[in-house]
Design a binder for these strands. Structure first.
Lengths: 103, 103
DNA sequence: ACTTACGGTAAGTTATGACTAACCATTCAC
DNA sequence: GTGAATGGTTAGTCATAACTTACCGTAAGT
């Protein structure tokens, strides 16, 4: 599985979307992430592991805290992936428009 | 759940990613999509239903065939969503770079 | 009217992953 | 050294969704 594929799988979970969105606002330690999220802290750890493996977040240790932040390279990979579809979607629209004006 | 959220959930499944990628090349009827995909045609129908509900594909009837194609609006929604993170990821990088040059 | 091709839907199966509780390692303050 | 805070990991639970098979409606040709 490619990394952009893994990234989409990672963000395919609603809880992980929320985690990612919160990290996008600012880097945050795990405990703080878990607070108010409605799931346990170990669950958050597991989600972060998936996001990290997908290249969407990075982690650094600050004393007892493990601070996570989003990784722009992962976001960029996803944007590049989507750009492919954008080009093609436009081409498909053009073709469809031409077909309709022909008929 | 918002539509971009639903779109990410939709593309969070590897089979649906493959379906989406094949439709990105050109519009295609269900039966043709199912061929070579390794899952049954009803499974493909169910996946297409999810993609359609997420605003990522549209369908038109052509006689007995139901032809699906990708929907640029759905792709655009996802790109817009990712743009938010891109801006913030860059800002986070800047902040981190400044912190490192300070220390 | 009959047959074939096409595809949506329902229902059943089951593997998977999101969740929890428990355990343990690391860091840091006292 | 001790205790508290932090967080990764493991193992168990179970709801869900990805899959299949079966059914049925529609379109089109004969």
């Amino acid at each position: 599985m490619t990394n952009h594929s893994r990234a989409f799988v990672a963000l395919g979970d609603p809880t992980r979307q929320v985690i990612f969105e919160r990290l996008a606002r600012r880097p945050m330690p795990v405990g703080k992430l878990a607070a108010g999220l409605g799931v346990t802290r170990p669950a958050v750890s597991q989600h972060l592991k998936v996001l990290k493996h997908a290249g969407l977040v990075t982690a650094r240790q600050e004393g007892t805290r493990r601070v996570y932040q989003i990784d722009p390279r992962g976001v960029e990979a996803m944007r590049t992936y989507l750009d492919r579809f954008w080009d093609r979607a436009l081409a498909a629209l053009k073709t469809a428009a031409e077909s309709e004006s022909d008929s």
